[in-house]
Amino acid sequence: MTEPAATALDWAIAALLVTGAAFALVGSLGLAKLGDFYRRLHGPTKATTLGVGAILCASSLFFSALQHAPSLHELLVALFLFVTAPVSAQLLVKSSLADDADAPRPPDTPDTADAADAADDDRTGDAGTGRPATRRPRDRA
């Protein structure tokens, strides 16, 4: 059985498939590795969406060539995903922010965004108190 020679279209489909899957893997790697929820959200919302878009392009090219007719279902799914990914991400952030606002926290705990600064301040702050020299705990009320 003789295999047909690979054309430029085949190489394009192959490249799109592999890069798309690699981007999806990077997105999931970000989801697994990054530090807190708001950072983790970046992987799936951006890298994975791009990866799936590339894979859908590859599929569209492949089936267009196979059936000798344009195959446009893929564009439908790509469009749907590109519209829905930001919506679900925004809903998740809203729900996470609401949970964070409700969470009781000890009065001395610095805000998450200030944690790095506060750690620096601790080293130069009043000896013994363990409290930053200048920064007062933020009033959350």
Partner: peptide, 21 residues
């Protein structure tokens, strides 16, 4: 073509790793 078949198999392996993560 074998190029597309191989690329698809590599992509399936990468996506499987993504699913595990």
């Amino acid at each position: 073509s074998p190029v597309v078949a191989t690329a698809a198999e590599v992509a399936i392996a990468l996506l499987a790793a993504a699913l595990l993560l």
